[in-house]
């Protein structure tokens, strides 16, 4: 078994893999708990846990709520917008517009922040607008890639069934590939999490984990910084797992029982 674990392409039972992952996490925690010297910039595990407890008492939940609500609002708006742009790309007139949006992800947003601050009035609206714009470029790119990879045979099948072009758009592109939409959100949500800190830092009065992290950074409070980083990471992993679960519940992604 041990040899198999270190041999490429060997099949390992899922339970064993979970045990291996658990062992690795334990090893990391032990190393962090016992091997990090006391007087160093790198915070020790007990210090991080203590810092997390302190922050929880001082309103971490509020910031958590603020971040998640911002993330949710921006994701919903962005997905709606991205769906409209991406699905309309099968209509020839709108194809160039959708293509143009995919290219915009190379454009740094920093140059537009002043304009957007003026346009949105700053605050929460600015944060949502920035996230929506950024996320949409990535969502549109990923969704268009899903649409482009639909085999022509799927369209032929529906055409042979006398379906209208609009019915085909609904049946083949939208309905039959709704699970891919969830997968696109899951794969691109990490970008939101990477951006959320910068976006929340733009207006700290709105609160959120990003604002908290910037303040903590300034104070050079390393245990708190680590505690916040880990909180953001765990929330990201949790959302990733939930979305993965929803994706797996679609019939096309369920494993064959026989």
């Amino acid at each position: 078994m041990l040899k198999k674990l270190f041999t490429p392409f060997e099949y390992i039972d899922k339970k064993v893999l979970y045990a291996v992952a658990g062992f690795q996490v334990l090893l990391l925690a032990l190393a962090w708990g016992f091997l990090v010297p006391e007087k160093t910039f790198f915070p020790r595990l007990p210090e991080v846990i203590h810092a997390w407890g302190e922050m929880w008492k001082n309103g971490l939940f509020y910031h958590l709520y603020k971040t998640l609500s911002l993330c949710l609002t921006a994701t919903v708006i962005s997905i709606l917008f991205s769906c409209i742009v991406s699905y309309s790309s099968v209509i020839p007139f709108f194809r160039p517009i959708a293509n143009f949006f995919t290219k915009l992800r190379y454009n740094p947003i920093q140059g537009f922040t002043l304009f957007l601050t003026t346009a949105t009035g700053g605050g929460r609206n600015l944060q949502i607008t920035l996230l929506v714009i950024f996320m949409s470029f990535y969502f549109i790119t990923a969704l268009m890639s899903v649409i482009d990879s639909i085999p022509e045979e799927d369209y032929y099948r529906r055409k042979a069934m006398k379906m209208s072009r609009w019915q085909i758009l609904w049946k083949v592109v939208i309905k039959d590939r709704a699970d891919f939409l969830i997968e696109v959100i899951r794969q691109n949500l990490s970008i939101t999490f990477m951006m959320i800190v910068s976006v929340e830092a733009m207006d700290k009065s709105q609160g959120g984990l990003g604002a908290l992290l910037v303040d903590t950074n300034r104070a050079l409070n390393f245990p708190k910084i680590f505690a916040l980083q880990l909180t953001i990471l765990f929330i990201g992993i949790l959302l990733d797992t939930v979305l993965k679960y929803f994706f797996s519940q679609f019939p096309a992604n369920k494993k064959r029982s026989a």
């Binding site: 085999p151 045979e153 099948r157 055409k159 006398k162 590939r177 699970d179």
Partner: peptide, 19 residues
């Protein structure tokens, strides 16, 4: 015309998420 003839393709494409 499209729809006059049933067309069963080599790969037998079916819907992914429909029973």
């Amino acid at each position: 015309a499209e729809g006059d003839v049933g067309f069963v393709q080599q790969t037998f494409p079916l819907s992914r998420n429909q029973s």
